[in-house]
Computed example of a mutant assay.
Amino acid sequence: MRMRNADETCGIAGAALVLGDWWNVLVLREVARGHVRFDALAAEIGLSRKVLTERLGRLVASGVLTRSLYQRRPVRHEYLLTDAGAALLPVLVAMQDWGDRWVLGDGSLTATADEDGAEHARVHALTGTRLPEDLNLPGPGGESLPVVPPDAAATVLFTYPGTGVEWGEPPIPGAAGCTLENRLFRDAWPEFRRSGVAVRGVSTQLVHEQEGFARAEQVPYPLLSDAAHHLAAALRLPAFRGAGRLRHKRLILVVDAERTVRHTLFPVVDIPYAVDRSLRLAVECGGRSTA
Rank of each mutant, 00 (worst) to 15 (best):
N5F: 12
N5I: 13
A6R: 15
C10T: 04
G11M: 12
A15S: 08
V18P: 07
L19I: 10
W23D: 14
V25W: 07
R33M: 15
D39L: 11
I45D: 07
I45F: 01
S48W: 10
V51A: 14
T53I: 02
R55D: 06
L59N: 06
L59T: 10
L59F: 09
R72T: 15
D83E: 15
Q96S: 09
W98F: 14
G105N: 06
G105D: 00
G107L: 00
G107I: 08
L109T: 10
T110V: 04
A111S: 03
T112C: 01
A113G: 00
D116L: 01
G117P: 05
G117H: 04
V123H: 05
T129Q: 15
L131P: 10
P138K: 07
G139P: 03
P146H: 04
V147S: 00
T155H: 09
V156A: 03
L157C: 07
T159I: 02
G162L: 04
G162A: 06
P173D: 00
P173Q: 02
A176Q: 03
A188R: 06
A188M: 08
W189R: 05
W189N: 02
E191M: 08
R194I: 01
S195F: 10
V197M: 12
S203E: 04
Q205E: 13
V207I: 15
V207F: 13
Q210M: 11
F213L: 09
V219S: 08
P220I: 02
A232H: 06
L235G: 11
G242V: 03
R250S: 03
L253E: 11
V254D: 09
D256A: 13
A257N: 10
V261F: 14
F266M: 05
V275M: 04
L279N: 04
L281R: 05
A282E: 10
